[in-house]
Design a protein around this nucleic acid. Structure first.
Lengths: 231, 231, 231, 231
DNA sequence: AATGAATGAGTCTTCATTCAT
DNA sequence: TATGAATGAAGACTCATTCAT
């Protein structure tokens, strides 16, 4: 029937809603079930445990995230540099619209770091390591990165990005800026007495710097007119 | 007496050690007390509750973090650009040596974002809002930023950073890159079959990009022979 | 079809295998079904509930157990005393080869004791009382005993057992020894530093004592040359 | 105050009462606490978990059991054979008065058997293996046996038990009879239409057989007069 | 300042059993 | 007969926090 989503998805959606509102820790499995309109037990039928559920959620977040990358890459009539700017805008938007998904991806990055070092791998919750979804992500987690690297390569080819840059490192740098930007919007995005930069200026200014980094500043002598006012 | 640190510090040090090894959630107050060689009850004499303890720890992390900024600024014979590079190196090192402190600072940033938006402020754990240490940080959290902005200003003054940049935004951008860099070292810093960039190339390549961003790429015309190989 | 045992038996066999490996409590109905290659629901078609399944198993254990008695009684050319020794050997072997069946029988004995006292009958799991199989056993549980009593009577008749013994009580005593023997093989059957009796000496020594008890010790005057070495 | 037993004992006593009434499985830790008049948490302060509590109980059962042995051995003016008869009477009484303690000891015997065989040791509940009390019992579990062996030795010395018997094996045999007797009192101790032996005859008859076994049946020609009526 | 016994709310998880199909 | 999704009661265990001493 219409409106009769399959249970698995129903549970995931409840989880997203509740994790968003109260956080992972504070959300009880029972509430997830209740919100999904099913029994507690069924939750455990579809997901081995709370961590498994969270990993499934993370996996979905990842897929959706990757889709953003794909959309950017698919868009016609844009050069590589513009794509990266789009990617940033989309990511920032994604973080705002789907905070839980975004946090889940970041959290996965943290776990991944531990996973990649034998010394810290044992610190990872065993239930996470048990989850099928975690291992699926282990396999695919580099795919969005690859798409990003393609954007840089494309930019180099179409001349929007300076040719001496190495695509992999460059994309990682862009990606780092994007993630960092989102993180810093905490203290910045606040119209308090202390801040000198308005939140409005912050994102475009940041974007421009990123562009400068990628294209070189030969152009900076000319058309900076408009943007300069932002600074 | 000599060797008899005051209890308050003793507790904090235990907490750091345990949070490092097992994380905040997994660490029990009892263990903190045991490690500090005191009773559980006394812990609650010095810190209202677990969150308060964590906020105290965060405050200390912040102070230490600010000290890193100060040291960079204090160093003689360096231009602004070099200072920012130093800051990055120091931060990365800080994250490696004092992971709990670093995470505490990042966590504070997340809380701060919620705090700055009336809509999300209520999601913050009341015990956090109760903590004196949290409020102290609210007062001082912009200080490191200010020091960073000074570095950019200094760079503009001494010519190492292009003059058209606006110091505040520029520093936030640099800061974002640094934080993002650290976060991305999860998937990157791993010598797997998938990764094309070696961890060794990653940090210097990243740094160079940051420098390009700040100084402009006029220099790029005389190609940076050595580094090019990295790219 | 050949190789297509009926479902009922299939389930019972799965149960035996799993109870042996993990015990009754730790075995889940789902696993029983899985091992039997059928669905969970079907299990409940053939057996009302887990207890009923266990009672069915116990019933089968009982039948098999009784068969051991029959075999002993059937064997030609043995006197009563020899039969009882055979019974002991067979029982010990049964306990080793079919531990679940043996335990099931013992468990039935415990339940039976509760059942026989109005005061404790209410402590029995209602599901057990509900089971048809339990009531079947109530009817037949004395049959093996009767066969055992026949052996004693036979022994008295053929002179291998002293005539002044009362068959019923005597058989119960023999039976008690057998059950006790099996129970005690825990601490005894272990070649530790503490035990002075070797497990090898234990069973024949025990058997000899039982024989002494039954036949009288007239023979003891002509010392049992061979067995003495065991003592 | 008077009546203010220490908590540890209080908990144990509650456990005994509840295990007696409802069995180990059916008893909830919460009920144990409630009956002891304390909080659930405190139960876990004194005992690591339910299994640990049960092992503590078993340990106490063991101590008390050993005490029965000691009392028998201590009794003046009795020969070895009489001691063994006393031991049987005491044990049967113990099983009746302290069914949980008695069952706990039997259960320990079962666990012990698994423990003594490397192949089955892994089947033991890890929580049991974790318990200090379990390991204490591992150390002392042969002590009652030793006391029993002393009784036999004493009997041989004082002439009440025939001299050709080997004390260790003989005591194990006696002990097996006692345990078996208790187990068999299920089907026997019931005044139903089926049973031919009255429960009254059962115990003395059984005892006499045991005596015959131990002392030899030379005497059987003479004084069987009284007991014969029992048969 | 200091102790540590005592509390009890909080939650995950299991699994026998049912029932629509 | 046969399935397996769905239920929900049941229970062990944790741990931050308090408080009498």
């Amino acid at each position: 029937m219409a409106g009769e989503k399959n249970k698995e998805k129903l549970i995931l959606d409840s989880a997203v809603a509740l994790f968003t509102a109260k956080g992972f820790q504070a959300t009880r499995m029972e509430d997830v079930a209740k919100k999904a309109g099913i029994s507690k037990g069924l939750t455990y039928f579809y997901y081995k445990n709370k961590e498994d559920l969270f990993m499934a959620l993370t996996k979905k977040a990842f897929d959706q995230f990757k889709e953003e990358f794909r959309e950017v890459l698919r868009s016609k009539g844009k050069n590589g540099l513009e794509m990266l700017c789009d990617l940033m805008a989309k990511t920032v938007n994604f973080a705002k619209e789907q905070p839980v998904y975004y946090q889940a991806v970041l959290n996965f990055l943290d776990v991944l770091k531990k996973y990649n070092h034998p010394a810290t791998r044992k610190e990872i919750d065993p239930l996470v390591l048990d989850s099928v979804h975690f291992h699926k992500m282990l396999e695919i987690h580099l795919e969005p990165i690859k798409l990003g690297v393609q954007m840089v390569s494309q930019g180099i080819k179409d001349g929007s990005i300076r040719p001496e840059l190495q695509p992999e490192i460059t994309f990682y740098a862009v990606w780092a800026m994007i993630i960092g930007f989102e993180k810093m919007s905490g203290p910045v995005g606040f119209e308090g007495k202390e801040t000198k930069i308005s939140p409005e200026a912050w994102q475009p200014g940041f974007t421009k710097l990123m562009q400068d980094m990628l294209r070189g500043t030969i152009q900076a002598t000319r058309p900076a007119t408009v943007q300069t006012s932002l600074f």
